[in-house]
Simulated assay, not measured.
Amino acid sequence: MKRITSVLSVVLVLCLALAVTAPAKTLKIGSMSPLTGPYAADGNDIANGVRAAIEMVKKEGGIPGYDNIELFPQDTACDPRQAVAAANKLINLDVVGVIGAYCSSATIPASEVLDEESIPMLTPASTNEKVTERGLPYMYRVCGRDDDQSKAALKFMTDQLKAKSVFIVDDKTTYSQGLADGVEKLSEAAGIKVLAHDHINQGDKDFSAVLTKIKQDNPDVFYMSLQNSSTGALMLIQARRMGLKCAILAQDAVYHPQLMSIAKDAAEGAYLTFGYKDKSTDAYKKFMSVYAQYGDPGAYSEYSYDGAYALLQAIKKAGSTEPEQIKKQLESIEFAGASKLIKFAPNGDSGSNYIIQVVKGGQFVNYWNPATGKFY
């Protein structure tokens, strides 16, 4: 009896030793966004959205076969070269998927590098059409597209603002200039006179020169296509001080809570195009249950959460981290996300649902739906 007990004791000790010494298996995913610099607010929102998705998946039982899910956030600073370096770093870290980037000018070159290694990339914020038009098999987009956003802007200008003229300004980035070019072409085709299409530089603080031109030309609409909300806030402040009376229409990159915290009353009445979000849904409430610890969601928090959740669910359903198996599951996935219904088309897009919002009482308020022509 003593011998049996002794043997069992040895077996138990060995099992405990193996349990203690066995290395934990970690599932690694990456994110890419500007964590420093002028776009850091949106970039950190993206990283926090991924963190929230990881927490939710852990609450739901995690990924079988893995003890932990770890995020490796990389700073792209919206710089193409830094984005490529970040992509290479994530490859060396053996991540199985990447959520990012923010700027299209960073996403496009980084995705080329990741695609060479068959690593899925899901962007929550890059809206330039080229992102999903290059035929990269592992490139997905959770947000909408600029060609759809420009159509929403045009419909609002024609149907509601009854605009006859527009003055367009962008900051020369791949995203903002591409979107502005689209608005210009559509406006001309619709008979709206484009008085000018001017440009500023990233990092500019004084916009008096271009705003003086706008005031002199007196357009019906000032279309503001900028890469971030802080620049948009400064431009709104200076536009109001200069006494611009025209309607001001901006786009999704200007959409961020800090627009109001910086511009304050100067932001009141500004219109923006942004994807419709229904905050009354169970999916949105589920998202907020894990995201609230990071504060109010930013422009792309929900999109990054949905992208990360889709990636992790694809891995869970595949029971594998093999790229082809993840891709197969991403192509068939469909769920109600925090931002919208998540379902990917063969080219990697997930559809656009742009509406017009207005700043009212220091808040973004749903205003008009171009698809239905109805006010909220």
Rank of each mutant, 00 (worst) to 15 (best):
N201C: 08
V57P: 07
E188G: 06
K185G: 14
N218G: 01
C246D: 11
S111K: 00
G178L: 00
E70W: 07
K185V: 05
P323N: 09
P219I: 04
A233P: 04
V10S: 11
Y39E: 15
V57T: 13
K25I: 12
V221G: 01
S150M: 01
T212P: 06
V7C: 03
V96T: 11
M224T: 03
P370G: 10
Q160P: 06
C78N: 08
N353L: 08
E331P: 04
A47K: 12
F344I: 00
Y376V: 09
G37D: 08
L71V: 05
Y223V: 04
G307A: 12
Y309D: 09
G275L: 10
V95K: 10
A41K: 13
V290M: 10
A17Y: 11
L341G: 06
A314R: 11
R3G: 10
Q363G: 04
T26R: 10
P73V: 09
L186R: 14
Q357Y: 15
A19Q: 11
N88C: 03
A371Y: 12
A24V: 14
S104F: 05
V254H: 01
K286R: 14
Y271L: 07
T321H: 10
S332L: 14
Q82N: 10
M56N: 13
A299Q: 13
E112H: 11
L311Q: 09
K205T: 14
F364H: 02
L179M: 05
K193F: 10
D282C: 00
K58V: 13
T107Q: 00
G243R: 00
I326K: 02
I91S: 08
Y66G: 11
L16V: 15
M288G: 02
Y271I: 00
T231L: 08
